[in-house]
């Protein structure tokens, strides 16, 4: 499961202090909305990623709460301001309780 749902995140390796950079993310996940049926006519149980938490050096900086209208393999990009070198932690949770995490490192110069 964890391998199937591996998140992909793109963050620049380095940035100048004060620079605003884009964080691009996507996770392989069906985002089952609970109204789809399989080929035998059985309802596929609902299971969507409903939460994303982003921390920059341990501090909450960005978050998302998602409904069933977020597309499968959810793509999301947002921005962060380069203040200091360190770690950007992203944690997604789905309704089955599965947790997908990834940590990116960024070096802030100047």
């Amino acid at each position: 499961m964890a391998d199937e749902n591996k998140p992909r995140v793109r963050v620049p390796k380095t940035a100048k202090k004060g620079e605003i950079f884009e964080v691009k993310t996507s996770v392989t996940h069906p985002m089952e909305n609970g109204s789809r049926k399989d080929k035998d006519g059985n309802v596929v149980p609902r299971n969507i990623i409903n939460k994303l938490v982003v921390k920059y050096n341990g501090k909450d900086v960005f978050g998302g709460d998602f409904g069933t209208a977020v597309s499968a393999n959810p793509f999301l990009s947002f921005h962060l301001k380069a203040e200091e070198s360190g770690k950007i932690d992203l944690t997604w949770t789905d309704e089955s309780g599965a947790v997908f995490t990834t940590t990116e490192t960024i070096t802030v110069e100047g």
Partner: peptide, 30 residues
């Protein structure tokens, strides 16, 4: 983000902070 034509109206809600630098996001919806 709120939908007026989907089975449920809630699409997504994002929480931002000054650490974002700018309020600009991209996503894909059904």
């Amino acid at each position: 983000i709120i939908s007026e034509g989907n089975p449920t109206p809630n699409v997504a809600s994002y929480t931002l902070s000054p650490a974002c630098g700018k309020a600009s996001i991209n996503m894909r919806m059904r």
